[in-house]
Design a binder for these strands. Structure first.
Lengths: 172, 172
DNA sequence: GAAAAAAATTAAGGTAGTTTAAGAAATGAG
DNA sequence: CTCATTTCTTAAACTACCTTAATTTTTTTC
């Protein structure tokens, strides 16, 4: 992460809300320790998790951050965490960055895109049980750290049904 | 697209397969005219569309292209099209590119990521009917050009059920 | 422009996942 | 440690969406 630390480190506690809908996102967040989540609340009041960001991940509303439109998502700490801010002025205009830094950003976008595409495929083609198994294999450490409720929201099922899935898998 | 046309323009006909699972992707594709689709076939033989690429979009298996792992997807023309190849040697090593070109790539990844994230949210939080309405509003020109079957596969329902959704919407 | 092939429609029956609700277990606060 | 709160589990009734299959419509091909 050479050169990406122009901004200060901040300490935040579990439950702290860094970003919420309606505002234009002024920052992205880079997680040094702990874990954040981004999520939306749908028209029926249900929470859907867009992304988890444990150590070394970036999180934020890229759409709002990039195009100066009001954000639609929440960003919240799910553990006590240390983060650094990624300020808009720096990253919106890539021209201002060194070529190396642009490459670094580009690689982060690309890897994030690859992960997002895989998730789309998984949502389109796998059952909830398979998505849960995939999650446990892809993010074994997160499975330990996260509440079932959060994992359920991420893979797109109710906590009740995930509970049932787990019971079935234990029996096997 | 200044400077991105190092490669030749190719003309392909509807139905032509540019890429298939198992091979390591040697190229990405930039669409000048026409339309391509990328898709997977799941373990039950069902097709799931990952992306449509009409004029000015890029398409390909970024994961395979980037990390030299065997591809898992098909890329196929759904209209007669003109495309240019995006060769791996150029884009895998961003170092070799001019800063401007890196910025251009970064922006394409970023915009693609924003679109992919929106799709994840939509799959998690919206009903099939709402996803169809969103699709018609987001891609009005594609709705005209694409067969119902393809749209159904993209939004994640069977053609039969999309047909039913349409009937309901016409009645309203 | 006629025959063949592919796509779309309709409907009945089925299933994966949701809803609701209530009790048990784990976590958090003082 | 203890009470309050949140999370997890279980189960029964329900619904969004799927499957199958037959018919109609559209598109492709020669």
């Amino acid at each position: 992460m050479k050169n990406l630390n122009h901004s200060n480190t901040q300490t935040i506690v579990k439950g702290e809300l860094l970003s919420s809908p309606g505002k234009i996102a002024k920052n992205g967040y880079f997680v040094k320790t702990g874990c954040l989540k981004s999520y939306i609340i749908d028209s029926e009041g249900k929470e859907h998790i867009i992304q988890f960001a444990p150590e070394h991940w970036m999180i934020g509303d890229l759409n709002s951050f990039t195009f100066d439109v009001p954000s639609e998502i929440y960003v919240e700490a799910i553990e006590d965490s240390e983060i650094t801010l990624i300020s808009k002025s720096e990253y919106q205009n890539l021209d201002l960055l060194e070529k190396e830094e642009v490459i670094e950003m580009s690689n982060k976008y690309r890897n994030n895109l690859i992960a997002s595409n895989k998730r789309v495929i998984s949502l389109l083609s796998s059952t909830a049980e398979q998505r849960y198994i995939d999650f446990t294999e892809t993010y074994p450490t997160l499975v330990q750290r996260l509440r079932l409720k959060l994992i359920a929201s991420y893979i797109g099922v109710t906590p009740e049904y995930l509970s049932e899935i787990r019971r079935k898998l234990v029996k096997k």
